[in-house]
Computed example of a mutant assay.
Amino acid sequence: MSHTALIPSHRKPRQSASKTALRAGVAGGVLSTIAVAGAAGPAQAEPVTQTIEMPTITAGLSTTVAASAEATQQVALDLETQANQDAAAATAAKAAKKAKAEAVRKAEAKKKAEAAAKAEAKAKAEAAERASRVSRSTERTTLSAPSGSSSSSGSSVSTASAPASSSASGSAASVVSFVQMQVGDAYVSGGTGPNSWDCSGLVQAAFRTVGVDLPRVSQSQSTAGTQVGLGNLQPGDILYWGGAGSAYHVGVYVGGGQFVGAQNSSTGVVQKSLDYDPPSGAVRVL
């Protein structure tokens, strides 16, 4: 065996006869065509004109664009309308709030005016009532004392011996005027004014107007001055019911056989004749 028998050959592999013939035929055909064209010489190529219709797509596109534009415009109009409505609602709410505040202010002003008018009317009525009381009391003190006598708790009071009219002056006149101005006020146990009293509270307040500070209770007031007989009374004397030092009720003699006292819760402060409730005794402080 040759020493090169197992070494692969470096030559190109041989092509099959069929592939070689095919390639030869193709090459021959191409060369033949070129030869024929060369033999024919240059020839004028006839221009070819052909119109190709392309599909129309702009019609649908324009419709879509138009619809989109219309939709955009509608959205803009809707937004503008909503904005206008919101602005109108805000303006209306602000106006309503302002109107409500104004109505509340006017209502409060009216309420205050009505309260002030009522207070003024009440004050005028009270002033007129007090003036009327003073007038009535003045007229009463000029009347003659009723005749006759009556007794209570073993004490005898002769109203015939009482002064026929009030001749109070100075401090006594001030005390009489004060108690007469309270006629018609309510009786309240422990009351010290200005519109409700008990018996000793009224007497104490009356004498305080002239600078005399009396004890607070009836028992002490019944011994606060000089004891005087019921037949020798003067306007401004303190009347008491019960014993001296143990009195249960007091009042002020106003002249003309009459007294003023805070009697009870049914009558309130009254001006009455001594015969209405004859006292037990009297003291003179002024």
Rank of each mutant, 00 (worst) to 15 (best):
M1G: 14
H3S: 13
A5V: 11
H10T: 12
P13G: 11
R14H: 08
A17L: 13
A17T: 10
A21H: 07
A24T: 15
G25I: 10
A27L: 14
A27N: 13
L31C: 08
S32D: 05
I34K: 02
I34S: 07
V36M: 12
A39H: 13
A39V: 14
A39N: 08
P42H: 06
Q44S: 12
E46I: 09
P47L: 01
T49K: 10
T49F: 05
T49W: 08
E53C: 02
E53V: 12
P55E: 14
I57A: 14
I57R: 10
A59C: 03
T64L: 09
S68M: 14
S68T: 15
E70Q: 14
Q74N: 13
V75T: 11
L79R: 13
E80Y: 08
T81K: 05
T91D: 08
T91Q: 13
A93Q: 14
A93D: 15
K94G: 11
K94N: 10
K97V: 14
A99T: 12
K106Y: 01
A107H: 05
K110H: 02
K111C: 01
K111R: 13
K112H: 13
A113R: 08
A116S: 10
A117W: 10
K118C: 00
E120T: 11
A123F: 09
A123T: 08
A125R: 04
E126H: 03
E126N: 11
R130F: 01
S132K: 12
S132M: 07
V134T: 15
V134W: 06
S135G: 10
S137R: 03
T138D: 15
E139L: 10
T141R: 14
T141V: 10
T142L: 14
P146Y: 02
S150A: 10
S152D: 15
S152Q: 15
S152F: 15
A160L: 12
A160F: 09
P163G: 11
A172L: 05
A173K: 14
S174C: 04
S177H: 01
F178P: 04
F178Y: 15
V179D: 06
V183A: 05
G184Y: 02
G184R: 01
G184T: 00
G184C: 04
A186N: 11
G191H: 01
G191Q: 00
G193N: 02
C199M: 07
L202S: 06
V203M: 05
V203F: 02
V203H: 02
A205E: 07
F207E: 00
R208C: 00
R208K: 13
R208T: 05
T209G: 11
V210K: 01
V210S: 01
G211W: 06
L214Y: 06
P215E: 05
P215W: 08
P215C: 09
S218N: 09
T223N: 09
G225K: 05
G229S: 12
G231Q: 04
G231A: 03
N232G: 00
Q234F: 02
W241H: 02
W241T: 02
W241V: 01
G243E: 01
A244C: 00
A247C: 00
A247Q: 00
Y248G: 06
Y248T: 04
H249E: 09
V252W: 05
G257T: 01
F259I: 06
A262D: 03
Q263L: 07
S266K: 07
S266V: 10
V269Q: 11
K272V: 08
K272A: 15
D275T: 15
D275H: 15
Y276R: 04
Y276V: 02
P278Q: 02
